[in-house]
Amino acid sequence: MFQSWRKTILTLLILGLTRALAAHGGTEAAAIDPAVAEKNRKANEACFACHTEAGLKNPPRTDMDMKKLAETLRDPKVFAGSNHGTMDCRQCHGQGYNDYPHSEGSKNEISPCSECHATRVARLEPQYDKSVHARLEGVKAKFTCATCHDPHVNLGATLLKDPLKIAVQDNQACLECHDSDRVFAKYAPDDEKKPGIKKARPDIDTIHDWLPNTKLHWKAVRCVECHTPEVKANRPLSHEILDKEKAEKNCLSCHSANSSLRTRLYRHLVKEEVAQFGFTNSVILSSSYVIGATRNPTLDTIVIALVGLTLAGVLLHGAIRIIFAIRRKGRKQ
């Protein structure tokens, strides 16, 4: 009871603090003091001594549950490159992990993301609640932020910058379940037609049959480009994940001069966009050629003019031929 109150008060305090920071140009993720980061890195070495592939091969102790350990391995390099890479593991996992064996029930003491990301969670939760993952019977309870956003791996778009890298990272979150029967079964709801039997994972290639160049799309854009509703410019991507019935199927949403990629995958780069060689959507062209979106209006005008002149030329030539033929015919008569 006390713990729950403590968390609520802490959340409200952080919410107030982050709002105050934002008002003064601050951000939620303030830069960390290098000395603190180094202290955290050293503290984390104790965790990584066991929770890595190397730790599993050469465990520093003999009394560990190796099966459990094998399920909780991390890559220290990947973690160091992630958004949370400078933090002490115990900042989220709590003090119950100071010693081994870890304290009973310490798994339940892991801080919720809202403890630090209160503003974001408050804003995104109503969107998420409309998601296919939140609306399916029995699925919502199994979902947390970390189900999709691996806090040991993910790097924010503004830090990752390269849209192709962002696509790989973010699609991995979806494919981890949707491309694995084993993981999908962990979250799957009951089959609508066969009560008591878990829904089978639909084959990812088959359900995207309608999409031309499917593999190329998956390399270049994220699942969420189509599987979230479009938001206004300058607004963050919606967390309402749409099912296949509601997902975007209009290709022109991206493949046109007014491409929605500007408010989605390329949103973080649009402010820095520099028009290059007169191309529309130059910001996209730096990573991908998107037919219909990355056009050069000057080249298009020249091409249309050339084809128009050819057509006009033959029509004029034909008209003169007809006029001359009529005149010749008149003379003969």
Binding site: W210, C251, S256, G292
Partner: peptide, 21 residues
């Protein structure tokens, strides 16, 4: 495909892409 625009009455994009291929 090249002049894809919601305002232009052209062949639907995904159909055009498949036929073109």
């Amino acid at each position: 495909l090249h002049f894809a625009d919601p305002k232009l009455p052209l062949v639907e994009f995904s159909l055009a892409a498949r036929i073109h291929d």
